[in-house]
Simulated assay, not measured.
Amino acid sequence: MREFGRIDAVVNNAAYQVTYSLDEATDEEWNRTFDTNIGAMLEIVRSTVGNI
């Protein structure tokens, strides 16, 4: 930001995956997967939205 003054693009590339069937995944595992795969993207966009 200091050098160029703005962000032109954001690449959201965070992921976490374990192979389970839905009935085998614990709530903790589901929450970790969702937070990493969805929550991280939301937070990255929120932190950059004013700078794009």
Rank of each mutant, 00 (worst) to 15 (best):
Arg2Met: 06
Phe4Gly: 05
Ala25Gln: 10
Arg6Asn: 08
Asp27Ala: 14
Asn13Glu: 07
Asp27Cys: 12
Glu28Ala: 15
Val10Met: 15
Ala15Trp: 01
Ile38Leu: 10
Met1Trp: 04
Arg2Cys: 07
Gln17Asn: 14
Tyr16Ser: 04
Thr48Val: 12
Arg32Cys: 04
Thr26Lys: 13
Glu28Met: 14
Ala15Asp: 09
Phe34Leu: 06
Asp35Trp: 11
Glu3Ile: 07
Ser21Met: 15
Ala40Arg: 12
Thr36Glu: 12
Asn51Thr: 13
Tyr16Met: 13
Gly50His: 00
Met41Pro: 08
Glu3Asp: 05
Phe34Gln: 11
Val10Ala: 15
Phe34Trp: 11
Ala40Pro: 00
Ala40Phe: 02
Asp8Val: 09
Glu3His: 02
Arg6Val: 12
Asn37Val: 02
Trp30Thr: 08
Asn37Ala: 04
Asp27Pro: 14
Asn13Cys: 12
Thr19Tyr: 06
Val11Phe: 04
Thr33Met: 04
Arg2Lys: 00
Glu24Leu: 08
Met1Ile: 13
Asp27Val: 08
Asn31Lys: 01
Gln17Trp: 01
Arg32Gln: 12
Ser47Lys: 11
Val10Ser: 12
Glu24His: 06
Val45Thr: 09
Asp8Cys: 15
Glu28Gln: 14
Ala25Tyr: 07
Gly5Asn: 02
Glu3Ser: 03
Asn12Phe: 11
Asp27Trp: 10
Trp30Tyr: 15
Asp27Leu: 11
Thr26Gln: 06
Asp35Tyr: 09
Ala25His: 00
Asn12Val: 03
Ile52Lys: 05
Arg6Glu: 13
Gly39Lys: 00
Gly5Pro: 14
Gly50Leu: 13
Asn13Arg: 05
Ser21Pro: 15
Asn51Trp: 10
Gln17Gly: 10
Arg32Thr: 10
Val10Asn: 11
Ser47Tyr: 11
Arg46Leu: 15
Ile44Trp: 05
Gln17Met: 08
Leu22Asn: 03
Arg46Phe: 15
Val18Ala: 15
Ala9Ile: 13
Gln17Val: 05
Ile44Met: 10
Glu24Phe: 13
